[in-house]
Amino acid sequence: MVRDPHAGLPALLPRLFAFARTMLGDADTARDLVQEAAARALAARRVPDDEPAYHAWMFRIVRNAALDELRRLRQPPIEDHAQIDLWRYDDMRIAKITVEQGLAVLAPTHREIIALIDMAGFSYGEAADLLQVPVGTVMSRIARARGALLAAIEASRVQPLKSHHG
């Protein structure tokens, strides 16, 4: 029996969307971009056979489209926040709202690696293949990116509400 090469696409769409949204910082654009990527994949003549290769292929399509979109928008690279002593502050500040705001002000390369590892769930090896960089580069990029994100959260004026129990 011939296996449908696109069988895993529906389950992949939320991850693709999260990745695109993080890269672009805009949900509407990300939604359109993922839909276009899905259509492009469905119309492709050659589709990777195995699941990991298919996932990487789909992310590559979305990533290339996102990079094109960023170039089209000519988004100026955003300077990283200065590294601060990240470990002294109250980590209760790490909440959904602060993370979303922090991601929005990160440099695209930082957003990209965080989206690939933390949202899309790629291993370092898979991300390295996708980005065509050594695994060590992925390792250092994700460390720098998380540091930058923590710094952005710390610099943000937004404070998550404290939850009270009892």
């Binding site: 769409l13 939320p14 991850r15 969307f17 999260a18 949900a27 939604r31 993922v34 839909q35 990240l86 470990w87 980590d91 790490i94 909440a95 959904k96 993370v99 979303e100 991601l103 965080i114 933390d118 949202m119 998380r146 994100l149 923590l150």
Partner: peptide
Amino acid sequence: RAYAALARLKATVANTADDVPTL
């Protein structure tokens, strides 16, 4: 403490990916 912050950050980032709109 640094480990806890990173683990919390990773989990929270992953959590932001749950907001998927209707495509």
